[in-house]
């Protein structure tokens, strides 16, 4: 039995597992690993009906995705309350992303309501669906097909106690998505992990170049690019509201340009053999575009970029970034000692 199940509650539709509202070290560690991409696509909870506290037929019903992190955040925020939790099958994906894919959707909710026989468990006919599930759920269709009215709950589970206390009313701030410093920082590890695979391929490429006589396998040559990865994946996302411009690629390019100035200064002080205008030019052609490209990828993590906007930004920026980067690489290879 899963460690978060602490008992059962008898209902007219059978026994329902009761879950703890306190997260254990195992839950916290599991979330941390998932943030780093470990077991992230297999971090699920079995779909079905659960409860917290002494749930009775009048207790509210809250719907959740079967991503363990979503489930954990929900049960933690229901501490001290009595409620039913209907976990639907989103294939282990969080509410908002699953709603975008349609797996957190009308059909799944209607089917799951029937499967757990919720009409027998509760005396009321209302389910609380997280607001971020709305892109996948047609509330009026759920009502028509299941007899359960959908009330959209707040964006953040932490607002649920206030929402429930107010008689299922959400203050307008509870309906708004943010993208706070913390929201952004927790998403940066998965960005770094995403760079690992291409980094291995590029690393192998460098080994081949070294074998061909290009002197590329030195920290002096590589560190500006390691820095560019950190700027694009971590620094620019962290500083997002303070970097000028609206396009992610522009924000990332500017942050990368600042790093390039730092690199030029470091080389000038400590690596005189690498300093000089030619190398500074190469850095400016390659380092900011790399940071810009990685920051552009962070649009996928953001909570406010539209598909139309990202399509436009990508179409405009990618050719410029690509040309700049390739020109720089050609200049770099042509100028490296050891072959010409």
């Amino acid at each position: 039995m899963a460690h978060y199940i602490v008992g059962t509650v008898k209902t007219a539709a059978g026994e329902v597992p009761k879950v703890s509202t306190a997260l254990t070290a195992k839950d916290v560690f599991g979330s941390w690993l998932a943030r780093w991409g470990v077991n992230r696509m297999h971090y699920g909870v079995p779909p079905g009906l659960y409860c917290v506290g002494d749930a009775n037929p009048e207790s509210p019903v809250v719907v959740s995705a079967n991503y363990k992190m979503s489930f954990d955040v929900l049960r933690k925020n229901l501490a001290g309350l009595a409620a039913w939790i209907l976990v639907i099958d989103t294939r282990g994906i969080n509410v908002w992303c699953a709603a975008g894919k349609g797996t957190f959707g009308t059909d799944e909710i209607v089917g799951r309501l029937a499967e757990v026989d919720l009409a027998k468990v509760v005396s009321h006919r209302t389910i609380i669906v997280p607001q971020l599930g709305a892109p996948g759920v047609a509330a009026h269709e759920v009502s028509k097909r299941s007899g359960f009215a959908v009330v959209y709950g707040p964006v953040r589970a932490s607002d649920l106690p206030a929402f429930l206390a107010a008689g299922l009313q959400a203050a307008s701030a509870m309906r708004r998505v943010n993208f706070t410093f913390r929201d952004r920082i927790v998403l940066t590890p998965i960005e770094l992990v995403g760079v690992l695979k291409p980094a291995v391929v590029i690393g192998l490429g460098l080994v081949v170049l070294q074998a061909l006589g290009f002197d590329v396998l030195s920290l002096a040559v590589i560190y500006p690019y390691i820095g560019a990865v950190l700027v694009g994946c971590v620094v620019a996302p962290a500083l997002l509201p303070w970097l000028p411009g609206r396009a992610f690629s522009l924000k990332g390019w500017l942050a990368g340009a600042v790093w390039t100035v730092v690199v030029a200064a470091i080389d000038n002080l400590y690596l005189p053999e690498l300093s000089g205008w030619r190398n500074i030019l190469i850095y400016f052609l390659t380092v900011p575009p790399l940071a810009a490209f990685l920051t552009l990828n962070f649009t996928g993590c953001s909570t406010y970029t539209s598909f139309s906007g990202v399509k436009k930004e990508t179409a405009l920026s990618l050719p410029l970034l690509g040309c700049s980067f390739l020109t720089g690489v050609v200049l770099l290879l042509a100028g490296l000692p050891g072959i010409w």
């Binding site: 709603a99 892109p135 759920v137 009026h140 990828n297 953001s302 970029t305 906007g309 990508t314």
Partner: peptide, 22 residues
């Protein structure tokens, strides 16, 4: 995100829903 169009009972809203991911 498409939540408005999906939840409009009168099909008054239209949007081409998608994920803003480069």
């Amino acid at each position: 995100c498409g939540a408005c169009a999906k939840n409009c009972p009168f099909a008054a809203i239209s949007v081409n829903p998608g994920v803003g991911c480069a």
